[in-house]
Structure formats: structure tokens, C-alpha cells
Amino acid sequence: MRDLVISGSGSASGGTFDHVKISGTGKIAGDLECSHLKVNGALKVDGNVKAKKVTINGTAEFSGRLDSEEIHIQGTSSSDDLKCKTLKISGAAKVNGCLSVEELKLKGSIDVEKDCEAEVFEASGIFTIGRLLNAGTIDVKLYGTCRAKEIGGEKISVRKGGSRFNRLIKSLFLLADDTLKAEVIEGDDLDLENIKADVVRGNNVIIGEGCEIGLVEYKQNYSGENGAKVTEAKKI
């Protein structure tokens, strides 16, 4: 099958290719299907993309859906609905629709306009989820302000990121707003730090330092740290 290579500046219509490599500025008008899409410069696609593997080192803008098995974003990317098996982000990604992945490893930032579904959601970056974050395992290390309207899952763990020293430095410069804000958090096993939420519901709930929570409802176990502000906690 043919390759599509744009070095310098060029444009192409969509189609089916083996490798697609953009080292410069490229524009693709139409749907694109390929085995590996690699962007080292800037790419604009006016259409949907289906690829086995996607690597973005520069910037990529997709007007449509992005569907792949493996996506690695080290630069910036924006797209409509994004679906893939493993998604690694050490740059910044914007999803103007729903994000559906099996495994997300986030070290940079992601902004999802609608729902985010994942089996494993591992974040040590910054995220904003416009509607529901639904994941089997949610493991968050906070390095900034993260937001999700609702969070639901089986195991949810949220902790402060960074070493004690780093946190001290940050607090000296009044940059200590490492929190996760959500309206509702629901799950089986919850272990939370630095959460601001209206309602937290779960089977086993541990509320740690820096939390501000209106209502905690738990089925089996509940423990609250001294440094946590919980207006009301009740057993269901």
C-alpha cells in the first residue's frame, strides 16, 4: 500500500495509506485511514481518522473522529470523539466530544467536552471532563486543578502529587491549589485527598487531607482525617 509523506508544506486528499508522515505543515481534506500516522510538524485533517497507531509530536487538528489502537500525544491535538485502546498524553489533548479508551496514561493535560470512559484512568497531569468520568480504576496524582462534573467507578484513588519539598515550594508561591473538583463522586472503594465535592457515595470511603465535601454516604466503612472538612457523613 502507498505511503503518504509530506515534508515541507503540502496538502492531500484523504484515502487509505500505509504510513502517513508529516514533517512540516500538512493539510488533509477528507477521511484518512492508515496503519501509522506520525506528525512531527503541524497537521490539519478535515475529516475522520482511523489508524492503527498515531504519534503526534507537533500539533494536530482533526475536525472529525479519531479512532486508533494506540495514540501517543507529545505535542498538542484536538479532535471530535476519540476512541482508542491505549492513550498516552504527555502534551495536551482536547476532545470536543466523548473520549473512550481502555487505558489512559496522562502526564500532560486533557480537556474532554462530554463523557470520558476508561477501564484504567491514570493521571498525574491536569484534566477537565465536561460531563461524566466513568472508569474501572481511577488513579489520580494531583499536580494542578482537575475538574469533572461527575465521577463514577470501582476503585477511585486521588492523592496529592509531588514530593513534600515540591509542595512546600509551591505553597510558598501560593500555587497550592492542587484539587479535584466534582459535583458527585460515586464508587466502591474511595480513597480521596484534596477533593472538593458536593456528594461522595461509596462502599468503603476514606476521606483524607484537604477535602471539602458536603455529604458523604457510605455502605460499609468510613474514615475521615482531621484535616478534612465533611459537613455530614451518614451510613446507608
Partner: peptide, 29 residues
């Protein structure tokens, strides 16, 4: 069933999205 099960089933499309009806009540959403 537990919260986790319900969310997993939703992820697996066993329960349609539009059966989830969100309403504001005095305890919030």
C-alpha cells in the same frame, strides 16, 4: 449491586445512556 457494577455496565453499554435521568433534588444532583 454496587456503584462500581452499575458504572461498569454503563461503560459496556448494557444500560442505555438515556435511561440515566439527571434531576436536581435538595441533596444536589
Amino acid at each position: 449491586i454496587s456503584y462500581g457494577q452499575l458504572y461498569r455496565w454503563k461503560r459496556k453499554n448494557l444500560i442505555p445512556e438515556d435511561w440515566f435521568i439527571r434531576k436536581s433534588t435538595y441533596t444536589g444532583q
